[in-house]
Write a protein that binds this DNA or RNA. Structure first.
Length: 341
RNA sequence: AGGCCUGUAGCUCUAACGGCUAGAGCACCUGACUCCAAAUCAGGGGGUUGGGGGUUCAAAUCCCUCCAGGCCUGCCA
């Protein structure tokens, strides 16, 4: 591990097989970053317990699908191009030092910071959480522990997570200040341009597992086709020959991603009424399935190699744990918590 | 630990005094219409009314008990 390399930390909630939103929103970025940085990528299983599960999703009251979700997600990370030789891949809870760091950080995290946290408030509103738990309020502190345990410099996250990283920086700064030691680097958001991936039902909505408007790597080509067929299109284009408005059309949004070379033609044909939505969808399905095929083939292969997957997670956890242990002992040192014997 | 409140379809709720096969909206699925999707129309699935016991000819409704959750008070830290 070279000293000069900056450290990246980032996590994903264990929601199972990746969908296109995850892939373009995060994974592609992660893959690029693993080349230049020391990267810690982990599955945040603890974070998935901060809320109740919605429907059959994982939450604190329903952890049934947790292990399978973790497995499917790691398979997709690797099938998609994360290389365990280039980055450290593991499960958050496999490094218990993070929990201890979380505890210590919680002692110095002002309650007001957490209560004021806009993401927390949105969470309560958007997910209609009537009875928030202690764990949910403390989410940013846990995230801070995730970053700081590995002394992360940069955190590649979306705009919605920006305030959390800012909180992590505040907590790190407060710790350094209180104990007059520069234990933690101050983590920064690494903003990157990511294409917005709409849901299959609405260009203005995000693709998400809970909304059910997604296409995942685990889906078959047929399933993908079915989901493309059900995509929302221009409501004023009733007949095949009507002039369409591609900018409000989900199918077109995906042509921009999977059919880049033909996108101007697609737009023109749609606008002038020489292209029907059915043809347009069929073409998209063909392009998308073609693009996803190598990853899907790889994921099928990996699914047969459970040992390999668990070995990757296990050696990832070992590597991460070493780093976290070193950080923690430093932390305990400055807080005078180190055992004499 | 005590007091009070809540529990009915995936979600929000209705079902007077105990009384017909526990209903509706949204969501979901199917069909019709559409190049498709959406919208619209038609149809459909879905419930041991939180569990158990009791009273009664008859319980979602009344009683007991347990479970889960919430609010308040107390106690401890």
């Amino acid at each position: 591990m070279s000293e000069s390399k900056k450290i990246i930390t980032s996590g994903m909630r264990p929601t199972g097989s990746l969908h296109l939103g995850n892939i373009f929103g995060a994974l592609h970025n992660w893959i690029k970053l693993q080349e230049k940085y020391t990267c810690f990528y982990f599955i945040v299983d603890w974070h998935s317990l901060t809320t109740p599960g919605f429907g059959d999703a994982v939450g604190y009251e329903n952890t049934k699908g947790l292990q399978n979700n973790i497995k499917q997600m790691v398979i997709d990370w690797i099938a998609g191009g994360l290389d365990p030789k280039k980055c450290t891949i593991f499960v958050q809870s496999h490094v218990p030092e993070v929990a201890e760091l979380y505890l210590l950080l919680s002692m110095i995290t002002p309650l007001g910071w957490l209560e004021r946290n806009p993401t927390y408030r949105e969470m309560l509103k958007d997910y209609k959480i009537e009875y928030p738990t202690y764990g949910l309020l403390g989410y940013p502190t846990l995230q801070a522990a995730d970053i700081l345990a590995y002394k992360g410099n940069y955190v590649p996250v979306g705009k919605d997570q920006e305030s959390h990283v800012n909180l992590s920086r505040d907590i790190a700064g407060r710790f350094n200040n209180l104990y007059q030691k520069n234990v933690f680097p101050l983590p920064e958001v690494l903003m990157t341009e990511v294409p917005k991936i709409p849901g299959t039902d609405d260009v203005n909505k995000k693709m998400s597992k809970s909304a059910g408007n997604y296409i995942a790597l685990i889906h078959s080509e047929q399933e993908t086709l079915d989901r493309i067929k059900s995509m929302f299109t221009d409501p004023v284009k009733i007949r095949k020959t009507d002039q369409g408005h591609p900018d409000g059309c989900v199918v077109f949004a995906f042509h921009k991603i999977y059919n880049q070379e033909a996108v101007t033609v697609v737009r023109q044909e749609c606008e002038e009424g020489s292209r029907g939505c059915v043809d347009c969808k069929m073409q998209l399905a063909q392009k998308m399935n073609q693009a996803l095929k190598p990853i899907r083939d790889k994921r099928k292969e990996l699914e047969q190699q459970t040992d390999l997957i668990y070995d990757i997670l296990s050696s990832g956890a070992n590597q991460a744990q070493k780093v976290a242990q070193a950080t923690l002992s430093e932390v305990k040192d400055v807080m005078n918590l180190t055992r004499k014997k």
